[in-house]
Design a protein around this nucleic acid. Sequence first.
DNA 1: CTGGTCGATTGACAAATATCAATCAAGCGA
DNA 2: TCGCTTGATTGATATTTGTCAATCGACCAG
Lengths: 237, 237
Amino acid sequence: MMRPGMPDSDYPDVRRLALFSEMADEHFNALMRGAYVQNFPQHIELITEGEPSDFLHVILSGAVDLFSVWNGRETSMATARPVSTFILAASIRGAPYLMSARTLEKSRIALIPSQDVRAIFGADNVFARSIVTELAHCYRSVVKTQKDLKLRTSLERLANYLLRQQSRAGGETEFDLEFEKRRLASYLGMTPENLSRAFKGLQAYGVVVQGNRVTITDQQDLERFAKPNRLIDDPHS
Amino acid sequence: MMRPGMPDSDYPDVRRLALFSEMADEHFNALMRGAYVQNFPQHIELITEGEPSDFLHVILSGAVDLFSVWNGRETSMATARPVSTFILAASIRGAPYLMSARTLEKSRIALIPSQDVRAIFGADNVFARSIVTELAHCYRSVVKTQKDLKLRTSLERLANYLLRQQSRAGGETEFDLEFEKRRLASYLGMTPENLSRAFKGLQAYGVVVQGNRVTITDQQDLERFAKPNRLIDDPHS
DNA sequence: CTGGTCGATTGACAAATATCAATCAAGCGA
DNA sequence: TCGCTTGATTGATATTTGTCAATCGACCAG
C-alpha cells in the first residue's frame, strides 16, 4: 500500500464534496496528509462486510458496487460514483461494515483513516455539521429505497428507476444505463430474467431498449404508469 | 397545544437517552424549556409524510407506528417505543418527513423544535457527536432492514424476527408479540394472510403461536432454519 | 347473555416472481 | 476470421406471494 500523502492534484476533487467543502483548510489538509490513494483494477473486492471499518473511502474515479451477502445469496445495495464517499456510518461508529464493496471498473480511491475523521470531527464544528448533513442524507436515501421496495412491484420500480435516470441524464429522451443489466436487476430486487420481461412490459408505455440504450418515447405515459413521488424518487428532498 | 416547558418530571427520562445523556446541563435545559409535551389518544396521526419537519419527537410512553403510503398502498416501516426519538434526520436537515407517524396506543410525546436542536448542535460539541452517533445508528438499522427484505423470503424474515424478539424478551422460550399481526405482516413486507401461513410453516421448526403468545420449543432447530446473522439481526453491531 | 365488530384464519384461486434450460448476441483474443 | 466467453433473452415451469370470500373467535356495549 502507498504511504500516506494524497497527491496534491487530488485535493480539489475531494474538497469539492459537500462533506469537505466547508471545513477549515488546516483541518482539511490534516485529513489529506493521513490519507492514502490507490488505483484498483476492475472487479476487486475493496471491503468485506463484517470486517472492522478503518477507513472512510472516497471514490475519485471509476465506480464501486456496494453489495451484501447472506446464505449464499447476494444483492446489490447501491453504487458509488465519483466523487463521493462511502461507508461513512461505519467509519464514524467504528463498527463493522454492513456491506461489501467491489470495483465495477478501474477505480481510484482515497482512504482516510477513520480515527483521523473522528479527530477532526471533534476539532472542527463545521466539519461535524457536514457529517451530520451527509449522514442524514444517507439515511433518507435508504428509507426511500425501502419504500420503493415495499410499496412497488418490480415493474413499477423499473419504471421509476428509468425516470430517475432520465432526469439524472439531463431529461433527455435517450440515455444509457449506467451498468450491467444483471446488476440493475439485483439493485431493483429482481432476477435478470425478470428484468428482461419488465423491459418488455414497459414497451406498452413507450420504453424502447437496445442494449444499454434506453429511449422514452412518451414520458407522460410512462409517468402515468410509474407515478413517481418526490418522497421516494427525488434524491434531494 | 401546550405552551413550551416540559414538566420537570419528564426530564430524567429524556436525559437518559444516548442522544441527550452526555451534553451539558445548560444546553439540555435550554432544549427542554423550548419543548412541548402532549398526550395523544390511540390512533392519532402525529405526522404526515411530505410535511415540513418542525419538531424532533421523543416518545415518553406508548407506541408509535412509522408508516408510508404510495399509490393507495401502505406499509409499516418501523415502530418507535419509549424512550426514543424519531424523525431525527428530517429535523436535522429541515427536510420534509419521509414517513408518517401515528399512535398505536395512548402516548405521551415531547416535541422539541428543530431549530433549537440545530442551535444547540452548533453550541455543544458533545451533543453534536451524539447526534452523529444516533444518525449513524439509524442509518445502519435501515440498511439491515433492507438486507433482510432483499435477501430473505418472508418465512425467513418471520423466523429471524421471532428470534430477535425472543432475544429482546430476555431469551425466554415464551414471549408476546408486541403488536397486532396485521401490522407485523406489514412490517415484514407481507399480507396478513401470508403471515398466518408463515406461522404455520414455522410449526415444523418448533414455533407455537396462540393469539399473541409465541413459544419457541426448539431454538436450535429454528436457528438452523433462520440462519440469523449479526450484520442483519443484531441491533447493536 | 347477545348481537355486533374487528382482526385472524382458512381455502380457492390469481398474479407475480423465481428457476431451469436453451438460445442468442456482442466482445475479444488467438 | 473463428471460436470462446459472458451476459441477455426467451420459453416452460415451479414457487412464492397476493387477492377474494367465507368463517372463526375474541371482545365489547347494550
